[in-house]
């Protein structure tokens, strides 16, 4: 779409989620679900859900996620806070059903804090951080598709904490090239993250 937004500033730009839910866009739904499913799988596994239960539980989380999406209120909580609560809740219910008190306590601590949705617990914070890292990781995957040559290598060496001069020595580039490449990859990464936030986090 060439200058679409410039030509018509009132034109709504739909998020991936809106397209998936409101417009019943099949492929948007697939893409949206794909991103969440992987994250939900990962988190549930991290929380100690057994492999044999993962598929079912993840499906349940996705269902409630999409069902409750209309209830999500941005003014009450950030999306990832809400997302964390949905996942955490589902896991809790699962463990309850399993009567696996041991597991429950291991993961969530004592009973009294279980239902407190309004006050983010440690587990919520952890899921939120995992979500942030997850988005950043998807973004990085996209960035890697864009750059050729040594740019990604330079950037990752930077992530490992190497100085520009060390990177220059290691890659045979000049220091100013190292700076330039690192700056460009980083900028692109940030742009991708911001784009993903728009895609995956309903506003």
């Amino acid at each position: 779409m060439k200058n679409g937004n410039m030509d018509n500033p009132n034109q709504t730009r739909y998020t991936l989620l809106q397209r998936a839910c409101d417009l019943h866009d099949e492929s948007a739904w697939e893409e949206f679900v794909g991103h969440y499913r992987r994250f939900i799988f990962y988190i549930l596994r991290e929380l100690g859900v057994a492999d044999r239960d993962l598929e079912d539980l993840a499906q349940q989380v996705l269902l409630s996620l999409t069902k409750d999406l209309s209830n999500y209120d941005q003014s009450r909580a950030r999306f990832r806070t809400w997302l964390s609560a949905v996942i955490r809740n589902a896991a809790l219910v699962h463990f309850r059903k399993q009567k696996s008190r041991q597991e429950r306590i291991r993961v969530f601590g004592e009973e009294q804090s279980i239902d407190s949705m309004d006050q983010p617990s440690d587990i919520d914070l952890r899921i939120e951080q995992e979500w942030a890292a997850y988005v950043a990781n998807i973004a990085m995957t996209r960035v890697k598709e864009v750059f050729q040559g040594q740019a990604i290598q330079v950037f990752e060496l930077g992530l490992d904490g190497l100085s520009a001069s060390d990177i220059a020595e290691k890659t045979g580039l000049t220091i100013s090239s190292v700076y330039t490449l690192r700056k460009r990859v980083k900028k692109r990464l940030y742009l991708e993250i911001r784009a993903l936030v728009v895609e995956l986090e309903p506003a």
Binding site: G34, R37, R38, F39, F41, Y42, R45, Q129, E130, W131, A132, A133, Y134, V135, A136, N137, I138, A139, M140, T141, E156, L159, D160, L189, Y190, I193, R194, V197
Partner: peptide, 22 residues
């Protein structure tokens, strides 16, 4: 990221999200 493969986070990118969004 290949959707078929399980997600393995790169911990080095943990801060990028906050920096980019905030």
């Amino acid at each position: 990221m290949n959707p078929a493969e399980p997600y393995r986070p790169d911990p080095r990118l943990a801060e990028a999200y906050d920096e980019a969004t905030q």
